[in-house]
Design a binder for these strands. Structure first.
Lengths: 217, 217
DNA sequence: ACCTGAACACCGTTCAAGT
DNA sequence: ACCTGAACACCGTTCAAGT
């Protein structure tokens, strides 16, 4: 398999890679079926740089999930094209399997049954990927459209959107991406501990299953 | 503002729209700054078709959140380009504000404070958007890469990835998108009810704040 | 002043023709 | 048999020239 530019924070295209390899773009299709597959392979390659072991007995399962997702999100956030690609395709390769296995183990340790843990891994990775994609996109546009968002929110009519006006734009924009991410992971874990996948998958009453513990409201 | 093809499930490009309007692509830049802005406006236009009121006293706040996000996800899932765009840009326009207001109100009713509700709206919409984007992408590729995912998972080494092998590929692929979505929303709501945004935003102990109620484990 | 044809600098993918 | 130059069918954006 060809050498791939590790550094380029720039978007990796078929043509750019081909140029880098001193050939025409057609040659790449010998190794790869389409650009999606190229990206999937590339993600796995970057994943190789992550620490996906879990030896430290002082680190709780919850902390391990946090650290893993933070690393993963950060990896994707610095490479806009990759984040974009990871949302659409399942990455493939050995390191991605390591990532899945690690998360599965941590969630198991937290007490989740296998079906719940499987879906949970999917959901956790989806959230991490989505926020990385958003972050990467905004970084490249120089955060100029953040002002635009605030303008839109500012145009809210107090009659029609009272809560929106009361809350103010900072509710949506406040906090660093990392902080927001960590909070989201906490929300997810706390929710997962109380929302199992229905045993009988065909009954459609999952909607109102409230979990085992009902406090607030 | 120009008339926009409502129907086209096809990707809306500057050039296609211009052709539809019998002009060159350059003309569009009088009304719109770039393609991102075009998509943001388009999303709002589609949002107009959604029911964003909340009159029915028989419908609980939880149910209303479910219905809203299901509608929103379905709207985006049928238009791949829109789902993709919604991940990267904040949509803009009056109907999007209606959507935010509705969710904010429902979450308030569920007992969330304003800062938590704000972040929660962001998170809920992100999850709905991300799964719609994934769904839309897979639908257009004819689900042929799902077989690829199962092949990757099948190649897992029982020594290195015991839990992955034990769980089997169905853990990640099982269930309809709608069902998976509904489950995700339940997880989020259950988690949100127990994970408030830290009052002092600078302390970094959000990680281990376990919520108010600890059952399981 | 307002609009836009044509050009610029790119894409991913295919396929016939070369070695 | 294997590889690839060149072509195909597109993109978003800009800008000089026309009305």
């Amino acid at each position: 398999m060809a050498v791939i530019d590790q550094e380029g924070a720039e978007k990796l295209t078929m043509r750019r890679l081909a140029h880098h390899l001193d050939t025409g773009p057609a040659s790449l299709y010998v190794y790869v079926r389409n650009i999606t597959e190229l990206n999937a392979l590339l993600i796995d390659r970057h994943l190789a740089g992550l620490d996906l072991r879990w030896d430290d007995p002082d680190e709780s399962a919850r902390q391990r999930v946090h650290r893993t997702l933070e690393d993963y999100a950060q990896l994707l956030a610095s490479r806009p094209a990759l984040a974009q690609a990871a949302l659409i395709t399942w990455p493939q390769g050995p390191h991605y399997l390591d990532l899945l296995e690690l998360l599965l183990r941590a969630l198991h340790d937290l007490g989740l049954d296998t079906p719940t843990a499987g879906r949970a891994v999917d959901l956790l990775l989806q959230v991490a990927t989505a926020s990385a994609a958003e972050q990467a996109a905004h970084a490249s546009v120089n955060a100029q459209d953040l002002a635009e968002l605030e303008a839109t929110l500012g145009s809210a009519d107090p009659e029609r959107h009272p809560l929106l006006v009361e809350a103010g734009p900072s509710v949506f924009t406040g906090g660093s991406p990392a902080e927001r991410n960590a909070w989201a992971v906490d929300v997810l874990i706390n929710g997962l501990l109380r929302t199992h996948v229905a045993a009988a998958p065909l009954t459609d009453d999952t909607h109102d299953t409230d979990g085992t513990c009902s406090v607030g409201r």
